[in-house]
């Protein structure tokens, strides 16, 4: 049997009391902070997961932000292209009207007037601006892409009738598709979202084999000229050209629509991911309030019991019972 000496009782009692108090303090801090651990070393496995989840959450909110921005640009592009479409329809109607044989020269001049208003409208659409961005600015969205100088239309300084030299590079948004670059440092298509809709592609550049301008603004210019001079000999080919341009724009519209719906799909998925990650974070990092308080109370009882016991343990010795 072990001898239990007075010093042993004192030391052990004090050290136990101290560790009780330490536990009590620890549990109080946890309950107050609402955390299941206060330092990563208390639960490295959980902390490791928690750091990962936190990064996920911050990425998700970043992607949500990027997807939101991309989606709002897509909406603006869609609006602009729809407007473009309806303007073309109106142009087409007016041209059809003006072609009919019973229109006088004056009437045709009026049509030319109407068409030149539409032409200006086209120019406005081409320089459509949402917030601080020109949606058809291509890779340079901060400056107006088109400008008109003495009747010649320029796209970022290049005459739209020239066949080459247009900057049709992309602007990529990272929306969580796993951004990758090629060995040469170029971004791999499909790993980021391209929000660039170069006006050169939408409105057309260069001339076709028949010498007709691919650009709708310039084509309408030709039509206006035809009506002004009352020379409708080439109008048929103009109208055909307008139709093919309109078709091209419809394709663009579908393209934008697809992109928009992809973005809204992503928005939903990201919201789901965010919910899951937040839930996970709560599970890992947060402590159940009821559990925290029960733990604290249990420990408090243990501490009080230890205090009460010390009173009994340390007070008496054989001397108290000697005569």
């Amino acid at each position: 049997m072990m001898r239990i000496t007075n010093k042993m009782i004192n030391t052990n009692y004090l050290s136990n009391l101290n560790s009780n108090l330490d536990n009590l303090n620890n549990l109080r801090q946890k309950a107050a902070a609402g955390r299941s651990y206060l330092k990563a070393s208390e639960n490295p496995a959980a902390a490791l997961k928690a750091y990962q989840v936190r990064q996920n959450l911050s990425r998700i909110s970043l992607y949500q932000n990027n997807v939101g921005e991309a989606a709002s640009i897509m909406t603006e592009v869609e609006t602009a292209v729809l407007e473009l479409n309806s303007t073309i329809t109106s142009i087409s109607e007016n041209v059809t009207r003006g072609r009919s044989g019973n229109y006088s020269e004056q009437d045709r001049a009026n049509i030319a007037e109407v068409l030149s208003n539409f032409q200006l409208e086209l120019f406005d659409i081409a320089n459509y601006r949402s917030a601080d961005k020109y949606v058809f600015g291509g890779s340079k969205m901060l400056e107006p892409p088109f400008n008109l100088e003495s009747g010649v239309l320029y796209y970022h300084g290049i005459d739209v009738n020239s066949n080459t030299g247009f900057d049709e590079s992309s602007i990529y948004y990272d929306i969580g598709l796993g951004l990758k670059t090629t060995a040469s440092g170029q971004i791999k298509e499909g790993t980021a979202f391209n929000i660039s809709f170069p006006g050169s592609e939408v409105f057309g550049t260069g001339t076709d084999t028949n010498g007709l301008p691919n650009n709708i603004f310039n084509l309408v210019g030709k039509m206006i000229e035809a009506f002004n001079t009352n020379d409708l000999s080439n109008l048929d080919s103009y109208v055909d050209k307008l139709e093919s341009i309109a078709e091209n724009i419809t394709v663009k519209l579908v393209d934008v629509g697809q992109k928009s719906s992809f973005l809204s799909f992503l928005t939903e998925r990201l919201a789901g991911n965010e919910f899951n990650a937040t839930k996970k974070q709560t599970e890992i990092e947060c402590i159940d309030a009821a559990e925290a308080i029960v733990n604290f109370n249990t420990q408090e009882t243990a501490y009080l019991a230890a205090l009460a016991m010390g009173n009994k343990l340390l007070q008496y010795s054989l001397l108290d019972y000697m005569k």
């Binding site: 890779s139 340079k140 969205m141 590079s169 992309s170 602007i171 990529y172 990272d174 951004l179 990758k180 670059t181 440092g185 170029q186 971004i187 980021a192 660039s196």
Partner: peptide, 14 residues
């Protein structure tokens, strides 16, 4: 930008 609009920043992000 290097050759595009924001391609160099994308490289940094990458």
């Amino acid at each position: 930008a290097d050759t595009g609009t924001n391609d160099n920043v994308i490289k940094m992000i990458n």
